[in-house]
């Protein structure tokens, strides 16, 4: 576990997890290249109507040029090239900051171009790559390195806590605990065999529903549990995201949130060392 107190190791884990997730998302975007045409769902002509700036405004002209079809495909390809250069060992031997900057900028452009269809994994991935970029500007700067790790860990804990807090306010999660069955029962995010198995098994549904609320809402306690207590929360998180990927098809969440776990372990270990002192 001492390894998790090594800042460079934490950033390396973070980098590989997030890059695997972003590379899958990027290839998925390219696979759907037709949807960015002007007569499709992600038509830039429609989305650009959000921009109330004057047509002669430089930002309007720039965004119009970069984000219109087919130029936008170039943005996605640029992101993929930067990711590949970072992932494949020994290909890029210079500072990683320029490549991470390219990933940050292209991610921001993709976010701007997608007023619908983005999810929490895209947001978490953007947060992680921005912090990775800030770290790689000057890896010797331990203050920024530590601040970045704490920032990622606290964002991740905020995400679990927020999800748990709002679930605790929902009737289908608490007083009538059948949310897990109802979600799995949908075609959009569920699975017919699993819904069929859970149907009329109220005890199991209640357990799954309440345990999701309880662990998400108490997830920030991972910071004070130390080792090996943290394994309960992080192990649950890993199982939760694996199940979401398998049953709900939320593949990118697994990588985006696993990328934050190294930071959570680092903060937990640092706090444990502090309590012992």
């Amino acid at each position: 576990m001492e390894l998790f107190l090594n800042i460079e190791f934490i950033y390396t884990c973070m980098k590989y997890f997030v890059l695997v997730g972003i590379s899958i998302s990027t290839i998925e975007l390219l696979y759907n290249w037709k949807s960015f045409k002007d007569d499709r769902l992600y038509s830039w002509k429609v989305i650009a109507t959000r921009d109330y700036r004057n047509e002669n405004h430089i930002l309007h002209k720039f965004s119009n040029f970069v984000l219109k079809y087919p130029n936008f495909l170039g943005v996605i390809i640029l992101r993929l090239i930067a990711i590949l250069l970072l992932i494949i060992p020994s290909v890029w031997t210079y500072s990683e900051a320029p490549l991470l900057l390219a990933i940050v900028l292209t991610s921001l452009l993709i976010n701007y171009r997608s007023p619908f269809g983005q999810d929490g994994s895209d947001q978490m991935s953007t947060i992680v790559v921005i912090v990775l970029f800030l770290f790689h500007i000057n890896p010797e700067n331990t203050i920024i390195a530590q601040a970045g790790i704490w920032f990622i860990a606290l964002q991740s804990l905020l995400s679990y806590f927020t999800a748990g807090y709002f679930k605790a306010k929902g009737k289908k999660w608490t007083t009538h605990p059948n949310a897990v069955f109802l979600i799995f029962n949908t075609s959009t995010y569920g699975s017919k065999p699993i819904a069929g198995y859970l149907q009329n098994k109220q005890e199991i549904i209640t357990f799954l529903t309440w345990s999701t609320v309880a662990i998400e809402a108490t997830f920030p306690l991972v910071l004070i549990t130390g080792y090996p207590g943290m394994i309960i929360f992080l192990g649950w998180g890993l199982g939760f995201h694996l199940m979401n990927a398998l049953v709900m098809g939320l593949n990118s969440f697994l990588w985006a949130f696993l990328a934050t776990y190294g930071a959570i372990i680092y903060c937990c270990m640092q706090l444990s060392a502090y309590w012992i002192m």
């Binding site: 929490g120 709002f166 306010k169 289908k172 949310a179 959009t188």
Partner: peptide
Amino acid sequence: PRWSFFAPNPGV
């Protein structure tokens, strides 16, 4: 970010 996944009212 918006972290309130499937809450308080999940899509059913």
